[in-house]
Deep mutational scan, measured.
Amino acid sequence: MSIQHFRVALIPFFAAFCLPVFAHPETLVKVKDAEDQLGARVGYIELDLNSGKILESFRPEERFPMMSTFKVLLCGAVLSRVDAGQEQLGRRIHYSQNDLVEYSPVTEKHLTDGMTVRELCSAAITMSDNTAANLLLTTIGGPKELTAFLHNMGDHVTRLDRWEPELNEAIPNDERDTTMPAAMATTLRKLLTGELLTLASRQQLIDWMEADKVAGPLLRSALPAGWFIADKSGAGERGSRGIIAALGPDGKPSRIVVIYTTGSQATMDERNRQIAEIGASLIKHW
């Protein structure tokens, strides 16, 4: 067993022997301040990774656009098919120029040779490549099948209805392509620590998230040296922004954090800054 596999296998073990965790309302004060600064709703939840206990939450059962955070769930569904012998990570998928959609920095470079399922998941999570996500959605049967996968996990809230990039439209009061912070946090925890996926697939999923290259201005910008984070960000229309993450000190994750916002007129930089400040408060009061 590799060191990384050992780390993920012992996530519940280490967490069980940690000192009790206590909620700190100071972080919620910052979440509410972010709402004021952005002029928009902000949803927040913080779960203990081992027990699933909610440590703090704000608007945990209000719907927010998922945006690209759905790509972690998508690759979880792909990995479940791999575990069941219905898919192979090494299978190569070929596609054409007509398949390319807006923001496809990886797939646009491989029109000639195609990409493997493993490479597509890596591109979808680490670079948020939209064509990679659409190609992977095709392998599982489309958005409705991802929703069905989530329902089978016990998540009857999260739903995907459309493809990239239309799913980022974020129309107010439109339930399409949305989740709730509580539902997303619980589902992410199941994917990373539950028995739904094999140990190898859980490790692969967290490795992809740990290698995320496009979430630097968010929670990662607030992390002290030595902290662990595996995350996936999302951005959408109407001032929408979000991030889902597993993080913790001492090089291992111990909490799940989900943050979503929508309806702001603020710039992307300002949305990023507010999420980073929430992260800084979380870490300060850990």
Rank of each mutant, 00 (worst) to 15 (best):
Glu145Phe: 10
Leu74Asp: 01
Thr158Leu: 01
Thr186Glu: 03
Val31Tyr: 01
Pro143Cys: 03
Gln37Ala: 08
Thr262Arg: 11
Met115Leu: 00
Ala148Asn: 09
Ile283Gly: 13
Gly236Ser: 13
Val29Ile: 03
Val72Cys: 04
Ser122Cys: 15
Leu160Cys: 08
Ser122Ile: 14
Cys75Asn: 09
Leu167Ala: 10
Leu146His: 05
His151Gly: 08
Leu218Phe: 01
Val31Arg: 03
Leu55Trp: 01
Ile278Phe: 15
Glu166Ile: 14
Ala215Val: 14
Ile243Pro: 12
Pro60Trp: 04
Arg189Lys: 04
Asp83Trp: 03
Arg255Trp: 08
Asp177Val: 09
Leu49Gln: 01
Ala84Met: 12
Leu199Ile: 07
Gly226Met: 05
Gly90Val: 04
Arg189Gly: 11
Ala280Cys: 03
Met127His: 07
Arg92Met: 01
Asn168Phe: 06
Lys144Phe: 14
Trp163Cys: 07
Leu38His: 12
Thr112Leu: 09
His94Leu: 13
Lys190Ser: 13
Ala280Ser: 00
Ala40Trp: 02
Arg220Val: 06
Val42Tyr: 00
Ala225Lys: 00
Thr126Tyr: 00
Leu100Pro: 12
Ala280Thr: 00
Asp231Arg: 06
Arg159Pro: 12
Thr198Ala: 10
Leu73Asn: 09
Ala211Trp: 00
Tyr103Thr: 03
Tyr260Thr: 00
Phe58His: 15
Arg162Ser: 09
Thr267Tyr: 12
Ser57Asn: 08
Lys252Leu: 01
Trp208Met: 11
Pro65Leu: 11
Asn134Met: 06
Asn98Val: 02
Ser221Thr: 11
Tyr260Met: 03
Met67Arg: 04
Leu79Pro: 04
Gly239Tyr: 14
Ile243Thr: 10
Glu56Thr: 04
Pro224Gly: 10
Gly90Asn: 14
Asn98Ala: 07
Glu210Asn: 15
Ala133Asp: 03
Asn173Phe: 02
Asp83Val: 04
Trp227Ser: 02
Asp48Ala: 04
Gln203Ser: 11
Lys190Leu: 15
Gly236Val: 08
Ile125Pro: 14
Glu35Val: 02
Arg41Tyr: 12
Met153Gln: 11
Arg255Gly: 05
His24Glu: 10
Asp83Leu: 02
Val82Gly: 07
Tyr95His: 00
Cys75Met: 04
Tyr44His: 13
Arg202Trp: 08
Ala148Leu: 08
Cys75Lys: 11
Asp207Val: 03
Ala211Thr: 02
Thr27Pro: 08
Trp208Lys: 04
Gly114Phe: 09
Glu210Lys: 13
Ser201Val: 11
Asn272Phe: 12
Leu205Asn: 08
Val82Glu: 07
Thr179Ile: 15
Met127Glu: 01
Val257Leu: 07
Thr267Trp: 05
Leu38Ala: 07
Glu62Phe: 15
Gly154Ala: 02
Tyr103Ser: 00
Ser57Ile: 12
Gly90Leu: 06
Leu247Thr: 02
Thr262Tyr: 12
